[in-house]
């Protein structure tokens, strides 16, 4: 039984890391990080509502993410405000709702554990159903990336140019936002609502430091995401620390190392170029 729980924990952390890393790279490149934050908090509020109602938090997280994805554009148009500003307003609303639902949750030991799992993550509580959903999402993400690889690259490079060349930019952007939201909702159990951003944006920030080729950045983000989630899990199990916090520590350490290496490489290249000129 323990080995099955551990196997689930290892697989779910790897898959969550890869999904978050990939989605983070895409959202970061499209300058949609604010919307990423919004979706994460929508998922958190949904999960908190689930705890309050003593229901499975995952379906409610997904529901709130889908609703948010659907209303963001029309709401922004109706209020004649930029989507970033509307995102920040909804972001504070969802944080407030999440805290209220957590505060109102029945005060049993079970709910305390449930609250803790959505806020800080509890990878050992991953169920077969959730693992199946994560694996399905990974397959959907890979198929999406392969199916629209050239169109996606064009949108990531320059949205205006892609639009002018007849690529359905809005459809691709909405699909990425929606996928990002679903990924966050499903990975809450692994990292927790407050630290999911570390798995979304630290691996992709590290990948952007390493490669000059967007295709490699996407693959590297997935690999570094999976690696930081795995290393975080090992740290958490070895030192008995919360899993979300351990993943955040490892992904931050990875970003620090890649930034340092990238800076050193840049300095060396600059020096050798200078030496070449002097010779």
């Amino acid at each position: 039984m323990i080995s099955l729980i551990l196997t689930y924990a290892v697989i779910s952390s790897i898959v969550s890391g890869a999904l978050c890393g990939t989605s983070g790279a895409l959202l970061m490149r499209l300058r949609l990080t604010t919307i990423g934050f919004l979706m994460a908090h929508a998922a958190l509020a949904g999960a908190a509502l689930g705890v309050y109602l003593e229901m499975d938090p995952v379906p409610l997280s997904l529901l709130l993410v889908v609703i948010t994805g659907l209303i963001l554009g029309p709401l922004s148009d109706a209020l004649r405000l930029p989507s970033d500003l509307v995102s920040m307003t909804l972001f504070s609303l969802y944080t407030a709702l999440a805290l209220i639902f957590v505060y109102l949750s029945p005060g049993t030991a079970l709910s305390a554990e449930a609250v803790s799992s959505i806020l800080w993550g509890s990878v050992l509580a991953v169920t077969t159903g959730l693992l199946t959903l994560l694996l399905t999402l990974l397959i959907i993400m890979i198929l999406f990336l392969l199916a629209f690889r050239l169109q996606l690259l064009a949108v990531l490079y320059n949205q205006k140019l892609a639009e002018a060349e007849g690529i359905p930019v809005s459809a691709i952007m909405y699909s990425l936002i929606f996928l990002g939201g679903v990924i966050v909702a499903l990975t809450l159990r692994v990292t927790g609502g407050f630290l999911v951003f570390s798995l979304l944006f630290n691996p992709s920030a590290a990948a952007f430091q390493i490669s000059d080729d967007m295709r490699k950045v996407i693959i590297l983000s997935a690999v570094l995401g999976a690696l930081s989630a795995q290393m975080g899990l090992i740290l958490s199990l070895s030192l008995d620390l919360p899993v979300g916090a351990s993943i955040a520590l490892m992904s931050s350490a990875m970003l620090a190392v890649t930034s340092l290496v990238s800076k050193m490489k840049e300095t060396l290249a600059h020096k050798s170029a200078k030496r070449g000129i002097e010779m």
């Binding site: 169109q151 690259l153 490079y157 892609a162 007849g166 295709r215």
Partner: peptide, 11 residues
């Protein structure tokens, strides 16, 4: 790839 992206809408 920047040049290849020009063919994306035809794919």
């Amino acid at each position: 790839y920047v040049v290849a992206m020009g063919l994306a809408s035809k794919k």
